[in-house]
Write a protein that binds this DNA or RNA. Structure first.
Length: 508
RNA sequence: GGUGACAUGGCCGAGAGGCUAGGCACGGGUCUGCAACACCCUUUACGGGGGUUCGAAUCCCUCUGUCACCUCCA
């Protein structure tokens, strides 16, 4: 497979990816609503589409990757809760400004994503920073006749829209089917139809976040922000829109409707906002979706620290990343301690493999391609990885290919003669291919070198061995330890209370 | 009720008409002062029942089970 194929939710088929304006690629991912800490579920789209971002860049595209921050909360519970905003609810609970809540969880999100080696997007727009854009978009939709105003709120007219464009193409829904589901609901007096959704909501005086608009003071609806921000930075039709499966309906469906109604009102053919729509599946826990509303989620911080009753131990961020990449993004992925532990061991194996390769290549000879069939190994690895990622981002298969060379290499490592007989450039090629796929594209990093805590533990151990030598009157060994450490700029200081150590780099 | 998925060996998970995916775990062995690592061997699966085919885990029908969406959710 020579070129990237992606499964487009719109067409339900895989198709070769062709950018609208090569070498430029625009991609958008619906980012987090920042009213709580990110959980394992948030990691999935961030990581899956991070790999896409990395791969597109690797292929030489100039990618503008927009991932928004939703800091005007969506409505918490429209029917029962008088439409209280999630962020506002959280702010009231904690006696904070809504923006304080948003800031705190945005920062936390960044910390978690950085730990997972998720690259920062090209643009990370905030919904509250794009209120004028959202208002303008609503005005367009109103002017084109696809929305109506009611008591200071504005609603999208789904039935009207459906006369010009098929509504529900992304999620495979028909308006009649949807109506059946709504029959039981009541209230919603302002809406002409229960299918309609708010573009702008009138704010009550107590509402903490509100803005002036042509329709009075209020706040934007639940779907308009993404249409406003994606089209602002990527154009009215762009390449790739991604998100979690649970956003497909109604969020993405609404986005498409809004974009068509605002930008392509007379065309009859709908542009769908983005040409390719990608959806990653959900992470389940005991076969059930992990979600805030179900209250069965595990935050990333809990995962990293092991501080959760469902966790048998802590899992490093790279283990979490590896765990997610070991399945295909469109499959459900079931969380369990066993699965995470297995992923951790597998990740360590690959990490060790790359580390040894990097060490060994330092001693490689300069023999170039000499027709030795061993050259096929790195070449095949590269080709296989490429074929797999091109097949709708099959990272699971890429990982399998990386494992494919482990036996060959580990055997080689233990056989000096065989190693010396090898053209050295093969190893260099191997390192190059491995680094490209493991680090650059999958975004997996090597297991971290020893930290400060480890050094402290090791020093304690060394000092205790020296103490034993002194007690045994083996002063030669004791002095040797002190002298050798001094060569590493570590000074041992004996005192009545015990031995201390300090590190002082020598001034050259 | 409507819509859409999915069921793969002890576990996790790719694959999608013929060719061992892979990882983890288990058992046996080599190496090793012990351990770890590594290597070798072993274990061969596609929910049930029909059908299409020379051949099906892969296509079709059917049954069973699980899940998701239809309301905020990554």
């Amino acid at each position: 497979m020579n070129s990237l194929q992606l499964y487009n939710t719109l067409t339900r088929t895989k198709a070769i990816f062709e950018p609208l304006n090569p070498p430029f690629v625009g991609m958008y991912l619906c980012g987090p609503t920042v009213y709580g800490y990110a959980h394992l579920g948030h990691a999935r789209p961030a990581i899956s589409f991070d790999v896409l971002f990395r791969y597109l860049k690797h292929q030489g595209y100039q990618v503008r990757y927009v991932r928004n921050i939703t800091d005007v909360g969506h409505l918490a519970d429209e029917v029962n809760d008088r439409g209280e905003d999630k962020l506002i609810r959280q702010a009231k609970l904690e006696q904070l400004e809504p923006m304080e809540v948003a800031q705190r969880f945005t920062d936390a999100y960044h910390i978690d994503m950085d730990a997972l080696e998720v690259l920062r997007p090209s643009i990370e727009p905030r919904a509250t920073g794009h209120i004028p854009e959202q208002i303008r978009l609503i005005q367009e939709i109103l002017a084109n006749g696809f929305a109506y105003e009611a008591h200071g709120s504005v609603y999208f007219n789904v039935r009207k829209y459906n006369e010009s464009y098929p509504y529900g193409t992304l999620s495979g829904r028909k308006i009649e089917d949807l109506m059946e589901g709504y029959r039981t609901l009541e209230g919603q007096d302002e809406k002409q139809s229960p299918l309609d959704f708010a573009l702008w909501k009138k704010a009550t005086p107590e509402h903490l976040m509100q803005w002036d608009s042509p329709w009075g003071r209020g706040y934007p609806g639940w779907h308009i922000e993404c249409t406003a921000m994606s089209t602002r930075y990527l154009g009215t039709t762009f390449d790739i829109h991604c998100g979690g499966l649970d956003l497909m309906f109604p969020h993405h469906e609404a986005e498409i409707a809004q974009a068509n109604a605002a930008f392509h009102p007379c065309e009859g053919t709908h542009r769908n906002e983005a040409r390719t729509w990608l959806h990653c599946n959900l992470i389940t826990i005991n076969g059930q979706k992990m979600g805030k509303s179900l209250n069965n989620f595990i935050t990333l911080q809990q995962l990293f620290t092991g501080n959760h009753p469902a966790l048998e131990r802590a899992y490093a961020p790279m283990v979490v990343r590896f765990f997610i990449l070991q399945s295909h993004y469109r499959s459900t992925l079931d969380f369990s301690n066993d699965a995470l532990t297995a992923a951790g061991k597998a990740y360590r194996k690959l990490s060790d493999l790359l580390y040894s390769l990097q060490q060994l290549v330092l001693y490689a000879n300069d023999v170039e391609d000499d027709g030795n069939p061993v050259w096929e190994i790195p070449r095949n690895l590269e080709k296989n990885c490429l074929d797999s990622i091109n097949d709708d981002l099959n990272t699971a298969k890429v990982i399998a290919h990386l494992f494919g060379v482990s036996t060959w290499f580990n055997t080689l490592k233990q056989d000096v003669k065989l190693l010396q007989s090898l053209p050295g450039q093969v190893l260099k090629k191997m390192v190059n291919v491995y680094e490209t796929w493991f680090q650059e594209i999958l975004g997996l990093q090597l297991i971290e070198p020893p930290s400060k805590e480890i050094l402290a533990g090791v020093m304690e151990l060394v000092i205790s061995f020296r103490q034993q030598a002194k007690l045994a009157k083996d002063y030669a060994s004791a002095d040797k330890i002190r002298e050798e450490l001094q060569l590493l700029n570590i000074t041992l200081k004996d005192s009545r209370e015990g031995t201390y150590w300090s590190y002082e780099p020598k001034q050259e």
